[in-house]
């Protein structure tokens, strides 16, 4: 574990907590894409399949349970909780996210490190996570203004993988044989997709306005 990866995990945890805070306390999911949340639930479900078979550390298992539990509960809240569901912007959240799942699965079947069931699904989760934010970014452009909590959620979610990139650079230089092109390229694509969001998000800080 290095400072970049810890910062990345904490940023990811913070993003999930900010979203849970928004949904649980003010019972609102305005501006949040249910489709992105559904994709993230699939990402964690396919990435953490080894949670029961391989133990890395208490921290690792604990965080996996947190991400699994939070992503599925957010989807449940947005789908079935009456008050929260009412604030869900169904008409605007129309990105065909299932069209993202199949290409990622095909790509994982073609490009992976080992051709095993767990490894292919784990690789699939990497590819899917890279594009999972697209429905949210499309919704963002349609709903113009968003509230601060949603903006902070997206900022933290985009930042965590950026910190992971620093972690991979650090590990590449400090650990022999630490080379994982698939993880690195997927992580880079994922972070680059946030580029224009980061641009407007920082403008907001400079301009002191809401995220336009």
């Amino acid at each position: 574990m290095n400072i970049f990866r810890l910062a990345g995990d904490m940023t990811h945890l913070a993003s999930v907590l900010v979203l849970l805070l928004k949904i649980h306390t003010i019972k609102s999911c305005a501006g949040v894409s249910l489709r992105t949340q559904e994709l993230y639930a699939i990402v964690f479900a396919t990435r953490y399949l080894d949670i029961f078979t391989s133990f890395v550390s208490v921290y690792n298992t604990f965080m996996k349970l947190v991400f699994l539990g939070s992503s599925f509960s957010i989807v449940w809240y947005m789908r079935y909780h009456k008050a929260v569901h009412r604030t869900y912007d169904r008409e605007q959240d129309t990105f065909r996210h299932w069209f993202l799942v199949l290409p990622c699965l095909v790509l994982a079947l073609l490009i992976h490190e080992k051709f095993t069931f767990l490894e292919v699904l784990w690789t699939f989760s990497l590819y899917l996570e890279a594009v999972a934010i697209l429905p949210q970014l499309v919704l963002l452009q349609r709903t113009r203004n968003i509230d601060n909590l949603t903006g902070q959620y997206i900022f933290l979610l985009g930042g965590y993988r950026g910190l992971y990139i620093l972690n991979w650079i650090y590990r590449y230089f400090t650990e022999p044989h630490f080379v994982h092109w698939i993880t690195w390229i997927a992580g880079l694509v994922q972070t680059l997709l946030y580029a224009d969001f980061f641009y407007y998000y920082f403008l907001r800080f400079i301009g002191g306005r809401g995220v336009e």
Partner: peptide, 10 residues
């Protein structure tokens, strides 16, 4: 194995 190294990340 070297691959297990990756799996120590979230």
């Amino acid at each position: 194995s070297e691959n297990d190294v990756t799996k120590d990340e979230l």
